[in-house]
Deep mutational scan, measured.
Amino acid sequence: KPRTPFTTAQLLALERKFRQKQYLSIAERAEFSSSLSLTETQVKIWFQNRRAKAKR
């Protein structure tokens, strides 16, 4: 499955949200993903990867 190329605007929004909160609830994820027109899975995986990156 090819990787999702996120737009610059989407990445900025994701990073901004991540700075506020490293873990999203299911409801927050649903709302946030639709506002960015991404799937919930894409947002979930992005947050997982971003948390892993923050640990390094």
Rank of each mutant, 00 (worst) to 15 (best):
E15H: 05
E15S: 02
K55A: 13
A27S: 14
I45G: 08
L38Q: 00
V43Q: 01
E31A: 05
F6C: 03
L38Y: 03
Q20F: 11
L38M: 11
K55R: 07
R56E: 14
T8E: 15
A54G: 09
F47M: 04
E40C: 00
R3K: 15
I45L: 12
P5R: 08
S33F: 00
K21N: 15
S34R: 09
L38F: 07
T4K: 05
K17Y: 09
L24D: 01
F18M: 00
K21F: 04
A52N: 05
K1D: 15
Q22V: 04
L36T: 00
E40I: 02
L11S: 02
A13S: 09
E15P: 04
T8H: 11
T39E: 08
N49T: 08
Q20N: 04
A13C: 14
Q22W: 03
A54P: 00
E31V: 07
T7L: 03
L24S: 01
P2H: 07
K17H: 01
Q22C: 08
R50L: 02
N49R: 04
A13T: 05
F32A: 00
L12Q: 14
R50I: 01
R29Q: 15
Q10W: 02
P2D: 11
A27D: 14
K21Q: 15
R50H: 02
T41F: 13
A52P: 01
L12W: 10
L14W: 01
L12V: 11
Q48D: 09
T39V: 01
K17C: 09
L36Y: 06
A52T: 12
I26S: 09
A13W: 01
T41K: 10
S25T: 12
I45P: 05
L36I: 08
S25Q: 03
R51H: 12
A27H: 11
F6V: 00
S33I: 04
E31I: 05
Q10D: 06
T39N: 08
T4E: 14
E31T: 04
F18D: 00
S35L: 08
E28A: 03
E40F: 07
S34T: 05
P5K: 03
Q20G: 07
K21W: 02
Q42W: 00
L11A: 05
R29A: 15
F47S: 02
F18K: 06
S35K: 13
L38T: 04
Q48H: 12
F32C: 14
R3W: 03
T4N: 06
A52M: 08
T41W: 10
A9Q: 11
A27C: 10
F6G: 02
K53L: 11
A30E: 14
Y23F: 11
T7R: 00
T41L: 09
F47C: 01
R51C: 10
L14K: 01
R56C: 09
K1N: 15
F6L: 10
A27I: 06
Q20W: 06
S25C: 05
T7A: 02
